[in-house]
């Protein structure tokens, strides 16, 4: 067995090495090839070759069958899916048969209290206001007023007893440590603002 470019080998080798080296290398390769040719290739047995043919032969129809099978399987699956959709739609559109229901207690609507009519006539307002007052402060309102007044009087008397009103509070300190009166005096004595 020879490779198809063995005749051009020397030319090929000259691209990489000197002409003399290329010649030697080409000769080595030719002799090597000749040596390999002396060892006949092992043969694939007729039985193994026949088995291989059988295997490939069964592979070919199988692949066709598989292709056709997968196509038919796809068609069948699609048809089944379509049938399911159609059935689902028809099922949803068909009015369902009346079913018995457990008796449910009647829910009573809560009664809504109607608001009283708004007074239209302004002439009735005094009377309406009086009614409101009397609703809020019933008959003992005078007594309550007297009680509050007496409490306030007591507090005033207590404050007077303590003498709080006569106590002189210290002058409030400003941020710079001066009192307000000191600051005012200082401003009065300063002429800077007069120009």
């Amino acid at each position: 067995m020879r490779t198809n470019d063995i005749h051009n080998l020397e030319d090929l080798l000259r691209r990489f090495v000197d002409a003399s080296v290329a010649e030697t290398m080409a000769e080595d390769i030719r002799r090597g090839d000749a040596l390999l040719d002396g060892f006949p290739s092992p043969e694939l047995s007729a039985q193994a070759a026949a088995e291989l043919r059988r295997r490939l032969d069964t592979l070919r129809p199988q692949s066709r069958r598989q292709t056709l099978g997968s196509i038919w399987a796809g068609i069948a699956a699609g048809a089944a899916a379509a049938a399911m959709v159609v059935w689902g739609i028809s099922f949803m559109q068909t009015p369902s048969a009346p079913t018995e229901r457990a008796p449910v207690a009647q829910v009573q609507r809560p009664a809504v209290q109607e608001p009283e009519p708004v007074v239209q006539d302004r002439s009735e307002l005094p009377g309406f206001t009086l009614n409101l007052w009397e609703d809020t402060y019933p008959a003992e309102s005078d007594a309550a007023f007297s009680e509050i007044k007496s409490e306030l009087d007591n507090i005033a008397a207590w404050i007077e007893t303590l003498g709080i009103m006569d106590t002189a509070f210290p002058d409030e300190r400003l941020f710079n440590g001066e009192t307000a009166s000191q600051s005012e005096t200082k401003i009065e004595l300063t002429d800077f603002w007069k120009g």
Partner: peptide, 20 residues
Amino acid sequence: KRENGAFDELVRRYAGRCYG
């Protein structure tokens, strides 16, 4: 195209060399 006989031809041409 996996035509009938094509694989036989393939085996005839190449199986021996590949086996070797």
